[in-house]
């Protein structure tokens, strides 16, 4: 069950985020215009909550992730973390924020430095943030983390290329966990994995959330994964949020035409049982028993309509 978000302060709040890339003239490289990647994106992530960001290529979902973690400077809007506006933070100030906000990348092959052992990959964050784990304990704690994410701790001296794709993604998760973050941004973190391995990693993410109270900003093009993992979902299209709501709202009662088209396109494993995702999932007994919880969702949708329309 997606856990209902506790009602405290949002951990992450993004308001009116805008990111644009300059378009330059071909010869003189003068800025002649801008291509807006993301426009007016507003959302919140509460502690311990999983928020999904879905969209197709070019929808700007990765741009949102990268501006939240500070890899891209936003052109407008504000990003708040833990009650502080971090949009205009200096690199030094950002350093402390980054400890609490980590990222798991899409490509388990490109996101791990090929010249570091697993132990060093996990310990890299401690080299930057000296006070997290004392140097003498690096190996021990790294091995603990490896065990926690389901890797054999005896392999801590191996290099990333000696592991399979799923195991590499576990290394990526262990590295993100090393700094004891409150929020982990998963940018297509399971998209490159085979389905059986993907399921293992999704389970791991859920276990870690329960155990450590992590919040996830989960970015994916795979709607079935988002539906499975997230409590709330934002649908991005052309750099704008076209629909936002609880996972039930979005998947069972999509309002926007784009969301409907997206859902209709999701391949169904057994098409002979019924066409769309929503019908196949709502026939699930568990889904039906959630009938009692639908009412508050509808209410929250109406509230949202009040705010945004």
């Amino acid at each position: 069950m997606p856990k209902a978000a506790p009602t405290h302060q949002p951990l992450l709040s993004v308001s009116n985020l805008k990111v644009a890339y300059p378009i330059r003239s071909s010869v003189l490289r003068r800025i002649v215009g801008e291509k807006v990647a993301v426009r007016d994106v507003t959302f919140e992530v509460k502690p311990g909550e999983t928020v999904g960001l879905v969209g197709e290529s070019g929808s700007g979902k990765s741009t949102v992730a990268r501006s939240v973690i500070g890899l891209i400077k936003p052109d407008a809007g504000a990003i708040g973390f833990n009650g502080h506006d971090i949009t205009r933070y200096s690199p030094r100030q950002l350093k402390s924020v980054r400890r609490e906000m980590q990222m798991v990348f899409q490509d388990p092959y490109a996101s791990l430095n090929p010249r570091l052992t697993v132990r060093d990959l996990i310990a890299e964050g401690w080299r930057v943030h000296r006070d997290v784990v004392p140097r003498g304990n690096w190996t021990a704690v790294a091995q603990e983390l490896m065990e926690r994410v389901g890797l054999n701790p005896d392999y801590s001296d191996r290099y990333a290329h000696q592991f399979s794709g799923g195991q590499r993604q576990r290394i990526g998760i262990a590295r993100a966990l090393a700094l004891k973050p409150k929020l982990i941004i998963c940018d297509e973190a399971v998209s490159a994995l085979d389905v059986s391995v993907q399921a293992q990693v999704l389970n791991l993410l859920q276990d870690l959330q329960e155990e450590l109270g992590l919040a996830y900003l989960f970015i994916s093009h795979d709607l079935s994964v988002v539906e499975h993992l997230c409590a709330r979902v934002l649908v991005l299209h052309g750099g704008e949020v076209v629909e936002e709501g609880s996972v039930h709202d979005i998947f069972d009662r999509p309002q926007h035409d784009y969301t409907k088209a997206l859902l209709a396109a999701v391949p169904v494993v057994r098409p002979w049982l019924g066409r769309s995702v929503s019908s196949s999932t709502s026939t699930h007994p568990e889904r039906l028993t959630q009938g009692g919880t639908i009412a508050p969702n509808i209410q929250s949708r109406e509230e949202r309509n009040d705010i945004y329309s």
């Binding site: 890899l71 350093k95 980590q102 990348f105 996101s111 930057v128 943030h129 990526g172 590295r175």
Partner: peptide, 11 residues
């Protein structure tokens, strides 16, 4: 990505 990953650590 692995260089970006180092940046996200706050390096």
């Amino acid at each position: 990505e692995y260089v970006e990953a180092a940046r996200t650590l706050g390096a």
